[in-house]
Design a protein around this nucleic acid. Structure first.
Length: 259
DNA sequence: AGCGATGTTCGCCG
DNA sequence: TCGGCGAACATCGC
C-alpha cells in the first residue's frame, strides 16, 4: 500500500510492537528483496535491537546499535507482528524473530520492496538523492525544491528527488484540492499558488496519516473514491478523466483543474 | 484471459 | 543538466 501516509503508519506500528527486544534470528525467505549483503544484514541485526525509527519519504529507517536497516515497500509491501505460533503471513520475504516469541514479517507481493543498510540517515538520503520529506518540510524548503524547476506538476510530485513521499494516488488528490491541472508547469505557479499547493500537500498527507493509510473509506468529497472511469467530480459533477504521464495514470477533473 | 496496479530505475532523446 | 517517455522488474486480483 505504501505512499507516505502508509509508511508513516508502518513506522508507528513498528515503534509500538518491535522496539527494544533482542532479535534472536532473521529468516530470509527470498533474497531478491535484499539490496544488502546477507552476511552484513545478519551481522547488523542478530543479537541486536531495533532502538528507534525514522521515516523519510516512503522509506522507513530503523536504528540499531551498529547501523540502520532501511525498509522500502514498493507497491505491495507490509509489516506484520505476530506470535510465532501463528502462521507466517502470505508473501513474507524476511522475518525477524524476537526473544519474546513474537515475529515481525516484512512482506512483498510484487517483489518491488527492498531492504538496505546504511551508516547514517544523511548517507542514505544522499545515496538515493531524496528531496525533503513532503510531510515534514517547511514552506522554505518547498520553495527551495521548486527553485528553477520547470517540470509539469504531476511528474514533479512523483519525482522523489523533488520532494519525497508522494505517490500516484495522493498526488492526484493534492492536485485536485489545489485545483491545479496535472500538466501545469511548476514555473508557472505564482506565489499564492505555491503556498496553496504546499498547504494542500500537508493537509492531504495529514488526512492520510489520520486514516492510517486506509484508502477504502474516504469521504465522497475527495477525489480518491472517484479515481476510476465514469466517475463524476464531487464538486462540479463533470466527468473525471484520466491522463497517462510517464507510465503512470492520473485522474483529474478537467473543469475544476485548469491548466 | 487480459489488463492494470499505491514504485523505482535506467536508457534514449530533445 | 533537466525533463518527458517507455520499458523493465514480478505477481496477483478483478
Amino acid at each position: 500500500m505504501p505512499e507516505l501516509p502508509e509508511v508513516e503508519t508502518f513506522k508507528r506500528y513498528l515503534d509500538k510492537t518491535s522496539l527494544n527486544q533482542i532479535i534472536k534470528s532473521i529468516k530470509i525467505i527470498d533474497n531478491r528483496v535484499l539490496n544488502v549483503d546477507e552476511f552484513d544484514l545478519k551481522k547488523l541485526v542478530i543479537n541486536n535491537k531495533f532502538t528507534s525509527s525514522n521515516r523519510h519519504g516512503k522509506y522507513l529507517l530503523v536504528n540499531l546499535e551498529q547501523g540502520i536497516l532501511i525498509m522500502h515497500f514498493g507497491m505491495t509491501g507490509d509489516l506484520e507482528y505476530y506470535n510465532k505460533r501463528q502462521e507466517d503471513p502470505k508473501y513474507s520475504k524476511v522475518i525477524f524473530q524476537f526473544s519474546n516469541d513474537f515475529k515481525l514479517a516484512y512482506t512483498s507481493r510484487r517483489m518491488f520492496g527492498r531492504l538496505y543498510i546504511a551508516k547514517s540517515i544523511e548517507e542514505f538520503i544522499e545515496s538515493k538523492k531524496l528531496g525533503p520529506d513532503a510531510f515534514k518540510m517547511s514552506l522554505e524548503e518547498f520553495k527551495e525544491a521548486l527553485n528553477r524547476r520547470t517540470a509539469i506538476l504531476k511528474n514533479a510530485m512523483l519525482n522523489q528527488s523533488f520532494i519525497a513521499g508522494i505517490g500516484n494516488i495522493y498526488s492526484d488528490e493534492i492536485l485536485f484540492r489545489a485545483k491545479l491541472h496535472p500538466k501545469s508547469r511548476l514555473d508557472a505557479l505564482d506565489e499564492k499558488k505555491v503556498k496553496d499547493l504546499f498547504t494542500n500537500i500537508k493537509d492531504v498527507l495529514q488526512f492520510g496519516i489520520d486514516k492510517e493509510g486506509d484508502l477504502s473509506s474516504y469521504p465522497q468529497n475527495f477525489l480518491i473514491p472517484h479515481r476510476k472511469k465514469e466517475e463524476k467530480c464531487p464538486i462540479c459533477k463533470n466527468e473525471i478523466v484520466s491522463i497517462d504521464l510517464s507510465g503512470r495514470r492520473g485522474y483529474y477533473c478537467p473543469n475544476c483543474q485548469v491548466e
